[in-house]
Amino acid sequence: MKEITEEIKTELKKMIYEFFADECETDINGLNPQTNVIDELDGDSLMVIELIETVKKKYDLDLKLQTVGKFLLKKPAETLEEIVNLFYMIYQYEDDIINEA
């Protein structure tokens, strides 16, 4: 497991909030941890894929998309808080995230 610093956490959270505000054409100030990306923002799994690809590239992570799919089957993430936590885990565990489900 890789350490995740507070700085990285803040960076990831900011990236995720900005991404959904932009993609869903909504005001970032209206977003909060309980915001449901699917129900309230009309977001979808394709957006999550784009975010995964961006984060993979930015942090040079070794991660297969299918691993995240299997992880999400056991631990679904729909609110922003759940999605942010998912990305903390992706950063820390990369492809081993499946063992943490």
């Binding site: 999550v48 998309l65 299918q66 799919g69 999400l72 089957l73």
Partner: peptide, 8 residues
């Protein structure tokens, strides 16, 4: 597909 890792 879902069991093989499709997100949705």
């Amino acid at each position: 597909a879902q069991s093989q890792g499709a997100l949705k």
